[in-house]
């Protein structure tokens, strides 16, 4: 009996080890055909290409893999790796290109979604992540803004301090202009600061706002290797008040009795009472004939 128990225990243990191992192998080994491994990146790197790769990454990949170098991908099995990690960057361009194109399990295939050029730009974006790792970050980042109500423009200036407490204008920083919506923040536009740390945005005249015409605007400095994320909130009466429609106030077949017009109620009850009056009048006459008992006939 005891021996039996030990046997069962051993079998379970073997099965468990087998499963964990198979899971492990699935987790780590994603075999790429050797002819695909050596494929060279057909797109030459440039600032524009890296930018394009970054925006494609943010649109298609970031929701699972997270912000690069932050290790904040969502929990899936196998976990989506951080694209700035060694696990990703140690692979050849060909391997990465193959994996992005073909996909596996919960990693979708992007062959039909992103062009070849786009997928190569994403790989360029991954490559330059490794160069950015060890830079001292600026502190006391400040965003100052000036609003021009007549043209609905916001001028923004960004500056920070280095270790020596010198004031520096932050150039080439990405700023998001967002507006608050019911379930999230709507990105209006991304702008880059110029060499003086300045940028500006012109707001469209016909942005739908809340019932008072207020727009809650969020100016967000996107995190970079040089600085952390900074946000500023402001409210402006720049939007248009949307024309609302109360479904219960319009007249429809399904609307309430209280919404029916007077002429309809009048004619309906007029017809109903008229018919009933006719019937009762006939009955009354018949009764009269019956009561007279033929005396007058």
């Amino acid at each position: 009996m005891k021996k039996n128990n030990i046997n069962i225990f051993l079998i379970i243990l073997i099965i468990l080890i087998f499963f964990s191992f198979s899971g492990y192998s699935q987790n780590t080994n994603w075999e790429v055909p050797s002819d695909k491994k050596t494929v060279k990146n057909s797109v030459l790197t440039s600032k524009n290409v890296v930018e394009k790769g970054k925006s494609l990454y943010e649109k298609n990949c970031q929701s699972c893999h997270g912000i690069p170098l932050k290790n904040n991908g969502i929990s899936l099995f196998p976990p989506p790796p951080d694209v700035g990690s060694q696990k990703v960057l140690s692979q050849s361009d060909g391997e990465l290109f193959y994996k992005i194109s073909v996909g596996r399990g919960s990693m979708p295939s992007f062959q039909n979604v992103i062009s070849d050029e786009g997928r190569w730009s994403i790989i360029h974006f991954f490559r330059q992540l490794s160069q950015k790792k060890n830079v001292q970050k600026l502190k006391n980042i400040k965003i100052t803004y000036f609003c021009v109500d007549s043209s609905q423009r916001i001028n923004v200036e960004v500056f920070g301090e280095n270790e020596k407490n010198e004031k520096l204008f932050i150039s080439d920083a990405e700023m998001d202009f967002l507006i608050k919506r019911n379930f999230g923040l709507l990105l209006l536009r991304s702008e880059k600061t110029d060499f003086q740390g300045k940028t500006s945005i012109l707001f469209s005249q016909n942005l739908p706002a809340d019932s008072l015409g207020n727009l809650e605007i969020i100016i967000s400095l996107k995190e970079d290797s040089r600085f952390d994320k900074v946000e500023v909130k402001l409210t402006k009466k720049w939007g248009i008040i949307p024309k609302t429609m109360n479904f219960n106030e319009i007249r429809a077949l399904w609307s309430l009795r209280a919404r029916s017009p007077f002429w309809l109620i009048f004619s309906y009850f007029g017809v109903v009472f008229g018919v009933w009056f006719g019937i009762f009048y006939v009955l009354f006459l018949l009764l009269k004939i019956y009561k007279s008992g033929g005396k007058n006939l």
Binding site: S63, S106, R181, N182, F183, G184, L185, L186, L187, P208, P242, T244
Partner: peptide, 26 residues
């Protein structure tokens, strides 16, 4: 939804938010 199929929002604001990525679009 784990695959980002659904967007939901307010038409008066002309904005819908994806339930998976939480991205808000026009």
């Amino acid at each position: 939804c784990p695959n980002g199929v659904f967007y939901f929002g307010d038409l008066y604001e002309d904005a819908v938010t994806n339930g998976t990525t939480k991205e808000t679009v026009s």
